[in-house]
């Protein structure tokens, strides 16, 4: 046995004792770590459970009240679970909100506007993201301005404009040329869906600014090399946009689609003004139904009846979006996360 081997053995023994000590120490630390982890996961569960309750509270209340016969509302022995079930609230709500008709109106409006906004806002966002042109920064500031200015401030002049829509000045020009009053050549967009389609078509629709911003951020994150490769292959800018950029922005497109759908669904102030008589969506009918009950002599003093119909109509109002959300939430969350809205 040479001295070298002996030395080696000693080293090994030394190493072993050292590692044993370390394992012991680490084990103790791990134990402590595990304990805090268990406590934290309990805390986390309680936190999520509590806040989840706060979020679900209105929905649970509605669900409890909708199927409850209205005479049990003031019964103190009934808190959450009804003694018997009824469908009369839902049936009343279906009548009061003209549900199927207004649902069709809402769906047509939301889907068409969302589709238009995707096309126009992505085009504009691409323009801002990839091309350098004079006045780009001030113009982008204008996009921000359209987000900041609330609709309530400019929407009276917009109403006048849509009431006498002059096709971007063409009517005035015709009026000047023919010598007649230009109002002969204007059209009223009130009570037509064009009052939503036209602003969406020109990128200044409901919260279009936010969508332009979102698309710009998304296109900026796509590597430039992809475009350059397409250019070398002889693609024009439109082809590049359709073939290269859009397929890479799928998750953003889905996000914008969902947001647009939801925001149009919930819009009340604009729809109330632009659809005084025809094409009223659910949001308007919901409020009209409640106002109608309050002014109708037969139901004015019947508070439980009013509440029953209100809860049922609210449930009918949010149920379609809720269903869409349940089916799309996975993509929705992923879409926002992966390419999402970044600073």
């Amino acid at each position: 046995m040479s001295a070298g081997v002996l030395l080696e053995k000693m080293h090994i023994r030394k190493d072993r004792t050292q590692t044993e000590g370390a394992v012991k120490k680490r084990f103790r630390k791990k134990d402590l770590y595990g304990a805090t982890r268990v406590i934290w996961s309990i805390c986390r569960f309680l936190l999520i459970f509590g806040l989840g309750f706060v979020i679900l509270y209105p929905l649970l209340q509605i669900l409890s009240k909708v199927f409850m016969p209205v005479d049990q509302y003031q019964d103190l022995s009934v808190i959450w679970i009804p003694k018997s079930l009824t469908m009369s609230n839902i049936q009343n709500a279906l009548v009061y909100t003209k549900f199927w008709e207004s649902l069709a109106n809402t769906l047509i409006l939301c889907l068409s506007c969302a589709a238009i906004q995707i096309v126009v806002c992505s085009l504009t966002g691409y323009g801002f993201a990839r091309f350098r042109f004079p006045l780009r920064e001030p113009l982008f500031l204008m996009v921000i301005l359209t987000i900041i200015i609330p609709t309530q401030v400019i929407f009276l002049p917009s109403f006048v404009q849509y009431r006498f829509f002059d096709f971007f000045g063409i009517s005035r020009l015709l009026g000047l040329l023919t010598g007649r009053d230009y109002t002969e050549f204007t059209r009223s967009l009130i009570d037509t869906r064009w009052s939503f389609w036209i602003p969406s078509l020109f990128g200044v629709g409901l919260r279009s600014g936010i969508f332009i911003y979102l698309f710009r951020q998304c296109f900026r994150n796509i590597p430039k090399e992809l475009e350059e490769a397409a250019k070398i292959d002889g693609c024009g800018s439109i082809t590049t946009y359709v073939r290269i950029m859009l397929p890479n922005a799928k998750s953003s497109i889905l996000t914008v689609f969902l947001f647009s759908l939801v925001w149009h669904w919930n819009e009340y102030t604009l729809t109330r003004t632009f659809f005084p008589q025809k094409f009223q969506p659910l949001a308007v009918q919901l409020k009209l139904a409640i106002d109608g009950m309050m002014s109708d002599l037969a139901t004015r003093t019947n508070l439980p009846f009013q509440m029953g119909v209100t809860y049922a109509s609210v449930l009918l109002f949010i149920l379609p979006v809720l269903i869409i959300y349940i089916f799309t939430q996975r993509w929705f969350v992923e879409g926002v996360e992966s390419s999402g809205i970044k600073g």
């Binding site: 126009v120 085009l123 504009t124 691409y126 323009g127 801002f128 990839r130 091309f131 350098r132 042109f133 780009r136 113009l139 204008m142 359209t146 200015i149 400019i154 929407f155 002049p157 917009s158 404009q161 971007f168 000045g169 036209i198 602003p199 078509l201 020109f202 990128g203 200044v204 332009i212 800018s237 946009y241």
Partner: peptide, 21 residues
């Protein structure tokens, strides 16, 4: 090309946003 891409929005901005403003 950049202006071509944002032109639709630009028309909307001028006629449907700045004019009401």
């Amino acid at each position: 090309t950049g202006y071509a891409f944002i032109s639709i929005w630009l028309i909307g901005l001028i006629f449907l946003f700045l004019r009401p403003l």
